Simulated assay, not measured.
Amino acid sequence: MTNRFWHIWTIPLLLAIVSLGGLISALVGNDLWDVLSWLTLSIPLLVIGRFWLWPQGNKKAVK
């Protein structure tokens, strides 16, 4: 049960932590913090774009 939980939720939890870090860095300061927030908040968008452009899954047609 625990192994299945982590298998499913590892990547979403990591993306949530990265997003939270980006949001906090955007609120904390300027200059370098702004760059850090842009970089960290772009990671989930890059992941979404990757799976939108090149989806994974079964390539066989369902009959």
Rank of each mutant, 00 (worst) to 15 (best):
M1A: 10
M1V: 10
M1F: 13
T2H: 10
T2N: 15
T2D: 09
N3I: 11
N3W: 15
N3V: 09
R4T: 08
R4S: 13
F5V: 14
F5E: 06
W6L: 13
H7A: 14
H7F: 13
H7G: 15
H7D: 15
H7N: 15
H7E: 11
I8L: 12
I8H: 08
I8K: 12
W9I: 03
T10L: 13
I11A: 11
I11E: 12
I11V: 11
P12G: 01
P12R: 06
L13H: 12
L13C: 14
L13K: 05
L14T: 14
L14K: 02
L15C: 14
A16Q: 06
A16D: 08
I17M: 08
I17F: 14
I17T: 14
I17K: 07
V18Q: 05
V18I: 13
V18E: 02
S19H: 00
S19F: 03
S19A: 07
S19P: 00
S19N: 03
L20T: 11
G21L: 07
G21E: 10
G21A: 12
G21H: 07
G22M: 02
I24R: 13
I24W: 14
I24K: 09
I24V: 12
I24F: 10
S25W: 15
S25V: 08
S25Y: 15
S25C: 09
L27Y: 06
L27C: 12
V28H: 10
N30K: 06
N30M: 03
N30Y: 11
D31T: 08
D31W: 13
D31S: 10
L32A: 09
L32G: 11
L32V: 12
W33K: 01
D34Q: 09
D34E: 10
D34H: 13
V35A: 07
V35Q: 07
V35E: 12
V35G: 09
L36W: 04
L36I: 08
S37C: 06
W38F: 14
W38I: 13
L39Q: 04
T40W: 05
T40S: 12
L41N: 06
L41Y: 07
L41V: 05
L41D: 05
L41A: 09
L41S: 10
S42N: 14
S42T: 14
I43F: 11
I43R: 00
P44N: 04
P44A: 02
P44W: 01
P44K: 00
P44E: 05
L45V: 12
L45W: 14
L45F: 08
L46E: 00
L46D: 00
V47F: 01
V47D: 00
V47P: 00
I48H: 01
I48E: 00
G49C: 06
R50S: 06
R50G: 02
R50Q: 07
F51K: 02
F51S: 02
F51M: 04
W52D: 05
L53C: 02
L53H: 02
L53F: 04
L53Q: 01
P55I: 03
P55C: 10
Q56C: 03
Q56W: 04
K59W: 07
K59N: 06
K59G: 02
K60S: 14
K60C: 08
A61N: 13
A61F: 08
V62I: 13
V62K: 08
